[in-house]
């Protein structure tokens, strides 16, 4: 599903954000991406969502080399990858419904079909009763779940999350993770970037650990051992 092949990324000025990173995420697999801030997690996600391009190496999604995607086609790639952002990135002066419907509107859905899908997505994250609310009136956790509903509403085969539990208390974090697990169980590949190591260890999923741009661990993470 997702493959990094000896990917390096250096920014102008010589800062190396990723150093020869290779890994493969299979279809229907769920994994965590951990590391300190500045370790390269964000850069890795930016390469997948084509916000940045690798300096060296190849990023492949479903065996399609992303370096072959020209600028006008980038939006179509982003439609195939659901992304959940740490700071939610919601349209604050639009209702929850409008926010979740946005990817569908962009793809040309309309009418009953769109409403049905939006309601299904909100139902999965447990926010069906907030459909007419503005995001400001929701709590942080609820806003995050709106972001999740928006990312999954057009049923992307690959789901990325950047610090989805960043500002949430442990109970809410666990709820959010349950939501990801539920998507994973229906065949969606999920990659969650987080520095919440306790949560990662409890969940018992494959964990990719980055340190100063290098991949230092790929496998189950044992809590308390402090692999960093």
């Amino acid at each position: 599903m997702l493959e990094f092949d000896q990917v390096s990324k250096s920014y102008p000025g010589g800062f190396v954000a990723l150093d020869r990173v290779s890994f493969k995420l299979e279809k229907g697999e769920m994994a965590f991406l951990t590391g300190h801030s500045g370790a390269g997690k964000s850069t890795l996600l930016k390469l997948i969502s084509l916000i940045e391009r690798p300096s060296v190496g190849r990023v492949l999604i479903n065996d399609v080399d992303l370096s072959r995607i020209r600028r006008p086609h980038i939006p179509y790639v982003r439609r195939d990858v659901g992304i959940i952002f740490q700071n939610h990135r919601l349209l604050m002066n639009h209702t929850v419904f409008d926010n979740v419907a946005l990817p569908l509107v962009i793809e040309g859905f309309s009418g009953k079909d769109m409403v049905k899908r939006v309601h299904a997505a909100l139902d999965k994250v447990g926010l069906l009763d907030k459909v007419r609310c503005l995001p400001q009136t929701l709590s942080g956790g609820e806003q995050q779940r709106v972001g999740i509903a928006r990312a999954v509403v057009n049923k992307p085969p690959l789901l990325l999350a950047d610090e989805p539990t960043g500002n949430l208390d442990p109970d809410l974090s666990k709820d959010i993770m349950r939501v990801f697990e539920a998507f994973n169980q229906v065949g969606v590949s999920v990659l969650v970037a987080t520095h919440d190591l306790g949560l990662v260890a409890r969940m018992k999923y494959r964990t990719l650990t980055l340190k100063q741009g290098k991949m230092i661990n790929d496998g189950l993470l044992q809590y308390q051992e402090d692999p960093l």
Binding site: R78, R79, F85, P103, E107, A151
Partner: peptide, 10 residues
């Protein structure tokens, strides 16, 4: 506009 671009708007 940034958000729309992130979710795949042309």
């Amino acid at each position: 506009i940034e958000i729309m671009k992130l979710v795949g708007a042309t």
